[in-house]
Design a protein around this nucleic acid. Structure first.
Length: 370
DNA sequence: AACACGGGGTT
DNA sequence: AACCCAGTGTT
């Protein structure tokens, strides 16, 4: 036995209390389950897709994307045989684009190695790119109705309160305790509804701020509520410190075409296309212009002369708050450098309709007569 | 254990 | 303006 921190939490819920909790939770879910598109059936492909879309993304943001995606690519074979640009275009605006590329790669693997059937084991699922412990557990329970615990944002908060978890839930120790609790909480059957009920309660009742404990079906079994300690528990998310960044995006025009490049593997928006874009260091307008000429040349080989600033967009990317200065420029020479590592091309603005762009890229495209 | 990765909704 | 979101993968 390894050394363990002294147990500071209240005693664990005992077996009879866990049974009562499960029963009340399921009864509550029966009355309060939302009508969500991925609950129409338990098709593993749809459950998988919904879980990946829902990673770090709220239900209401996912809903329209899920409907459009399943409308166009209704089965894993459709996804596997689709072009990556089409998959990314369907994902455009949802963020965390690696999810879409991993999903696409996993679909190819499922077709090639699993005869088009999603694996139904923890190991098989976690071997797929983009599927970690949570998503594997969610698919096993929700789609296959198998016994599998889950811990994600809703359940992390719910469990932490039910247990009155004193340690930092984001620490390794906190995480271990949460998974342990999730395991003990599992019923004997009905895993599909159970997983969804847990998340639904966390989402609708056991909310981050001012949870609706008066409406909670399991408040009687909640250690934090019983101790009046809901407000004093450690937060379940980490604070992020923002860094301001100033960048430039350049619409280089050559006759009726504009210059775009595909973001590389190591950079943000990998796989998506964008206008040449880089950090801007110069403060003065004149300095900015010469810097733009230089950076566009470094990035694409193209020589250009900035003409005017056409917009300033503010947006956030993970821990950065970015002020994006958008310029127009005219092509003055140079040879376009495009290769496998860094594809670039001249396109008519109308072609951008089928090209996956970042949100800022899309906004800019909308301003140049695309 | 910390960080990168998007974008939008809520408080 | 903070805070938050049905996390995963890399370093």
């Amino acid at each position: 036995m390894s050394r363990r921190q002294p147990q500071t939490d209240p005693p664990n819920l005992d077996a009879p209390e866990l049974r009562a909790l499960r029963r009340k939770l399921l009864a509550w879910y029966g009355r309060n389950a939302r009508d969500l598109p991925w609950r129409k059936n338990r098709d593993p492909y749809r459950v998988w897709l919904s879980e990946v879309m829902l990673q770090q993304t709220q239900v209401e943001a996912v809903r329209p994307y899920f409907l459009r995606f399943t409308g166009e690519l209704p089965a894993v074979e459709d996804l596997a045989s689709a072009d990556e640009s089409r998959v990314l275009r369907l994902w455009e605006g949802l963020g965390y684009y690696r999810r879409a590329r991993s999903l696409h790669a996993a679909a190819k693997k499922i077709v090639a190695e699993h005869d088009g059937r999603l694996p139904d084991t923890l190991e098989g699922l976690m071997a797929l790119p983009g599927v970690g412990r949570y998503t594997a557990g969610a698919i096993l329970s929700i789609a296959y109705d198998k016994r599998a615990p889950i811990v994600e944002a809703n359940t992390r908060r719910l469990y932490a309160r039910l247990m009155a978890l004193e340690v930092d839930p984001t620490s390794t120790e906190g995480e271990r305790r949460l998974w342990e609790f999730a395991e003990r909480l599992l019923p004997r059957s009905g895993f599909s509804n159970f997983s969804q009920a847990l998340m639904e309660l966390g989402s609708l009742v056991c909310t981050p701020k001012t949870p609706r404990c008066d409406a909670c079906p399991v408040a009687k079994h909640c250690r934090a509520y019983q101790a009046g300690a809901i407000e004093s528990l450690a937060p379940v998310t980490r604070k992020v410190k923002f860094t301001d960044l100033r960048e430039a995006a350049v619409v280089v025009r050559k006759a009726d075409k504009v210059l775009v490049r595909q973001c590389g593997e190591g950079e943000r928006w990998a796989g998506l296309w964008d206008f040449p874009r880089f950090e801007l260091e110069a403060e003065s307008p004149a300095g900015a212009k010469s810097e733009i000429t230089q950076k566009v040349r470094e990035l694409t080989g193209v020589a250009c002369e900035p003409t005017e600033k056409i917009a300033t967009l503010k947006h956030g990317v993970t821990r950065y708050r970015i002020t994006l200065e958008c310029y127009e420029a005219r092509h003055t020479g140079g040879r376009l450098r495009s290769n496998k590592d860094s594809p670039a091309q001249w396109v008519a603005p109308s072609e951008l309709a089928d090209t996956p762009l970042s949100v800022t890229g899309r906004k800019l495209a909308g301003r140049i007569g695309g």
